[in-house]
């Protein structure tokens, strides 16, 4: 009986050490859930920066890369050259969601830094982005036929692109 208890204690101890060792490499549970597997929010009348109405079926068909940006966002400015490269070199269509921005500031930002977007949705109050699950800028969503297959919170650069997005193209 004594041997069994010693053996059980040893097994329990090893299991505990193994469990904690594994949890060191586990993804952080504190991360906010990404929006993968979901679709785009409905019931919004979306306008482009130029005032034209957005055709929502366009967003729900084929491969769509949505990038949340703002003129006041420093990380967006860091990310911007890579987005320019994506649209120019890789010929990938990127649609912007201009998040909580003034129209004039947004247009000046694109004039100054280049416009990698085929168009940008003007989400001036951030309500569309809020329903989409955006917590700030920049964030990037990859949609295939209306389903979010990749949601990146933070900057997309070459390394992130190669690791998380490139295999979809």
């Amino acid at each position: 009986m004594k041997k069994i208890i010693v053996l059980l204690t040893a097994v329990l101890l090893i299991a505990l050490v193994w469990f904690f060792a594994l949890s060191l490499n586990a993804p952080k549970i504190s991360n906010v859930k990404t929006q993968e597997g979901k679709g785009l929010p409905s019931g919004f009348e979306l306008l482009k920066l130029n005032g034209e109405k957005v055709n929502e079926t366009e967003l729900n068909n084929g491969i769509v890369l949505l990038n949340v940006w703002a003129s006041w966002c420093i990380t967006c400015l860091v990310e911007h050259p890579f987005l320019n490269e994506l649209s120019e070199t890789y010929n990938i269509d990127v649609i912007g969601i201009n998040y909580k921005d003034k129209l004039g500031d947004a247009i000046r930002y694109l004039d100054k830094n280049g416009d990698p977007y085929i168009y940008s949705i003007h989400d001036y109050d951030g309500k569309y982005a809020l329903k989409l699950g955006v917590t700030g800028a920049p964030e990037t969503f990859l949609l295939i036929d209306g389903e979010i297959v990749k949601h990146r919170v933070g900057e997309v650069n070459q390394q992130v692109w190669d690791e998380e997005f490139s295999n979809f193209f």
Partner: peptide, 23 residues
């Protein structure tokens, strides 16, 4: 607050916290 390391949306000044409180 989904954008912060710690703290609730009451104590956070992040724009997302204000948006969530309004929602």
């Amino acid at each position: 607050c989904p954008k912060c390391s710690y703290g609730n949306i009451s104590s956070s000044n992040a724009p997302i916290s204000k948006d969530l409180k309004e929602e």
